[in-house]
């Protein structure tokens, strides 16, 4: 008797799968919202807002992404464990990106110093192609070499300090001198 009831309940259990079913209206509405947001992001990119540009487009993309994740992927109605798993993947991806970006500018000054030390050919190619005469180009070539002789002498002195302050100074120094050179020629 009790066995019978048990098997009945068992049959009902196995043959069902309770999930949240999203209505068609919601699906179509989300799709339309996504299309509108796409249009907005394309239009917004036409206005030049400088550094805000990336932030705006990423914000819109994030709104779109959360619409997809929560409605299309049912995460809003999903189990907490699945929510947690996805949430932490996003958190760790963000953490990863932040760490990379923190590190990537750490060697900027060294790179700048390196490019000032020996100007790579792709930097040389541009100004020479632009400048019709070869003589000023030779003068600018000579000038950085003189500067770089000064730069290593400076470097050991403020080794402890972050070198950010000294580089703009050398930049400022170079430009007037080169102008002087070209004027005198």
């Amino acid at each position: 008797m009790s066995d019978h009831v048990e098997s009945d309940a068992h049959a009902e259990n196995t043959q069902s799968c309770h999930v949240h079913i999203v209505p068609v209206k919601v699906l179509v509405g989300v799709f339309l919202a996504l299309v509108v947001l796409t249009v907005i992001t394309v239009e917004a990119a036409k206005y030049d807002t400088g550094a805000l540009d990336v932030i705006v487009s990423m914000a819109i993309a994030t709104v779109k992404a959360s619409l997809v994740v929560f409605i299309f992927m049912h995460l809003w109605y999903d189990k907490p464990l699945n929510k947690l798993a996805f949430f932490f993947s996003i958190v760790f991806a963000a953490f990863f990106l932040c760490m990379i970006l923190l590190d990537s500018h750490a060697y900027d000054n060294y790179v700048k110093g390196f490019t000032e030390d020996k100007t790579p050919e792709f930097l040389v190619k541009e100004p020479e192609a632009a400048a019709p005469a070869a003589a000023p180009a030779a003068a600018t070539d000579a000038k950085p070499a003189a500067d770089t002789k000064a730069a290593p002498a400076e470097k050991p002195a403020d080794e402890k300090k972050p070198a950010a302050s000294e580089k703009p100074e050398t930049d400022k120094k170079t430009t007037p001198e080169t102008i002087d050179k070209t004027d005198s020629k």
């Binding site: 196995t14 069902s16 309770h18 189990k79 699945n82 798993a85 996805f86 993947s89 990863f96």
Partner: peptide
């Protein structure tokens, strides 16, 4: 035991896979 259990297990599995995909693309 049941289809519910089978579905939930599979769903957790696919979410874990999607997590690896997110981390893969984050590179």
């Amino acid at each position: 035991d049941s289809h519910q259990q089978q579905f939930d297990t599979g769903k957790l599995g696919i979410w874990i896979f999607l997590v690896t995909e997110v981390l893969f693309f984050s590179g």
